[in-house]
Nucleic acid binder design. Structure first.
Length: 287
RNA sequence: GGUGUCGUAGCUCAGGUGGUAGAGCAAUGGACUGAAAAUCCAUGUGUCGCCGGUUCAACUCCUGCCGACACCA
């Protein structure tokens, strides 16, 4: 048999951690995490990082290795994870287990991202400033001029997308769309996707319960200690932003907790929407 | 017991000189090429509390009843 990457995916709180540890032990593989938030060392309770015991049972990668103070991205993850995967295969592994719920990151590993230039932080900052003060519409003329193709194809009301496209056009002097190859990257290993799922009602009640447990475990204190970092993009994370607004006096603690549950449910729903269109996923219902 | 206000979508509430109703949130569906736990888009039929009356027509006006709240006893 050839080299194979098994990706265990599924909505938040479905039960990926336990499942992937078992799968990894069986395959003699470490667990390669594919989670855009568990990668940050500052957060642990709110991101449901694996427990110490779980981490001790199998070698994990990309768990709490980076700082929220440093921008991380799907592109960065693609590079980092691919090189790790290559080296693990080179050291004799035949099957590797990856797990996580970050759809875009998983996609980057499976299909690759095109090589699109990134704007520097000051360019992005100025575009973002214009976005928030004058609205998306104010960015349209520039995008239309620099990249009519993208202008015609993206959701123009999505400010983040417009800024991203515009920033690529400006730094490169070429249209954002010209960087898109329109074909998937080739990987020299097989990919098998296993999707974990549960009946929606049950998933939602697991989410609600997990948030209560997080609060018991001290999420409030953790969030308070992270207040100094709140401006970093990585802190735009469910479980923290709601508590930040509680600290600001914008809502009661109960309201903040309810909002965490709600936003987590919304997140799970978006994850399912993303994966629903992927026919290559082998779904397993956990009961 | 009396008086008053209210009773409209899962929730909070709009509305109409009488022509069977609409917002926010929730919920559901969707998008997604370096912020992705982010960001964005779409979808609103519900005995307008119940029974009767007036009317061509009542959720809207009127009688009564039930329920909630407030005040007075």
């Amino acid at each position: 048999m050839g080299r194979k990457l098994v990706i265990i995916l599924g909505p938040t709180a479905v039960g990926k951690t336990d499942y992937s540890i078992h799968a990894a032990l069986e395959a003699g593989s470490p667990v390669i995490s594919c989670d855009s938030r568990q990668i940050f060392k500052e957060m642990s309770i709110g991101t449901a990082v694996p427990s110490k015991a779980q981490l001790a049972s199998v070698r994990h990668y990309f768990i709490q290795t980076n700082s929220v103070t440093q921008l991380y991205s799907a592109g960065q993850y693609e590079t980092d994870a691919l090189s790790l995967i290559e080296s693990l295969f080179a050291h004799g592994h035949e099957t590797l287990v990856m797990t996580g719920g970050s759809c875009f990151y998983i996609d980057a590993i499976c299909n690759g991202l095109d090589d699109v230039p990134q704007g520097d932080s000051s360019l992005r900052a100025s575009l973002m400033a214009k976005l928030s003060s004058e609205g998306v519409e104010s960015l349209w003329p520039d995008l239309k001029r620099l990249d009519p193709e993208t202008f015609a194809s993206i959701e123009l009301s999505n400010g983040q997308r417009v800024v991203r496209a515009l920033e690529a056009c400006i730094v490169s002097g070429k249209p954002f769309s010209s960087f898109k190859k329109g074909r998937k990257a080739r990987r020299d290993f097989a990919i098998e996707k296993i999707g974990l799922t549960r009946p929606r009602e049950e998933l939602y009640s697991r989410i609600n319960k997990r948030v209560d447990i997080m609060m018991e475990e001290g999420l409030l204190e953790e969030a308070k200690s992270l207040l100094p970092y709140r401006e970093y993009t990585a802190m735009q994370t469910v479980g923290y932003r709601e508590l930040f607004s509680y600290f600001d006096g914008q809502c009661s603690l109960d309201e903040a907790v309810s909002l965490i549950k709600l936003n987590t449910r919304h997140y799970a729903k978006r994850q399912m929407t993303w994966w629903r269109r992927d026919p290559s996923i082998l779904w397993k219902t956990i009961l």
